[in-house]
Amino acid sequence: MAEVQEIPKGPQTTGHVWDGDLQEYNNPLPQWWIYGFYVTILFALVYWVVYPSWPIGQGFLTGVNTITYTNSQGQEETWHWNTRAKLLREMQEAAVQQRPWYERISQMPPEQIVKDPELMGFVRSAGRALFTDNCAGCHQAGGSGKIGHYPNLTDDDWIYGGTFDQIRETIMQGRNGYMPPFAEALSRAQIDALAHYVLSMSGEPHDPAQATEGKALFHSHTAACYYCHGADGKGRQDIGSANLTDRIWLWADVPGAPDLPAKVAQVRQVILGGVNRGNMPSWEGRLSPEQIKVLTVYVHQLGGGQ
């Protein structure tokens, strides 16, 4: 078609004509949208002036806006606005609000904190936040632990002790639970005998003949279990050796084992391989002394504090 066809009505064309008859519609944006666009440009201009923006040479436009914060000498410092200074100030403001609480907590012994309902309200909320972030990964959100992996903090059985001082020490230093493997030192029959004896100490089902044999081994120089677990089998909290006389199990899932052979197998694998994975990291340095104190009281109050 050589003839240019006019578009009679509707949208306007741009006026361009290619190859004789190709035209382009022109659909302008709505006015409100255009003005909105201009407003964003104006906003950007204001933003460039107020906040850090354009790079120039070896620096950048810092903006006219400033922020004042307190430095570590306690003096006020003013710097151009930036998020790090804003965070510093926010943390300082929050610290000021929390200071009365933390001051009372740092001055009071844990035994008194527990008796103060108002302070305990703070400990329960702040402690829960700290516990969920730092402890729940292993000890689970409610502190019930994980049999075979991590100790239960809600019962009254404590590997390293359940007094305030002992709990604080555990949190600060971390712990390295260790029991040597006996796979090479003892025969399979000896280990099974020991397993029956260990089960008998907790009142679990066991074979009495084997348990008697195991008892002799337990107290002998061959196996020497009593070195760490004590002659009474109650363990030592200073080295974290387990109390074998209660019915609380950490490494051997005896409660979950359905019958006697399965229970023996659970105890056997601990004696065979020992324990070399009871490692708890240290929280000193990661948390402040006040936070550790809050956590100590929180863990103590989970159920079994002494």
Partner: peptide, 18 residues
Amino acid sequence: GKYSNEWHVQHLIAPRSV
């Protein structure tokens, strides 16, 4: 440093177990 090596091993093998 936040978790023990043992935790990482267990968690990578089976995250829901911990």
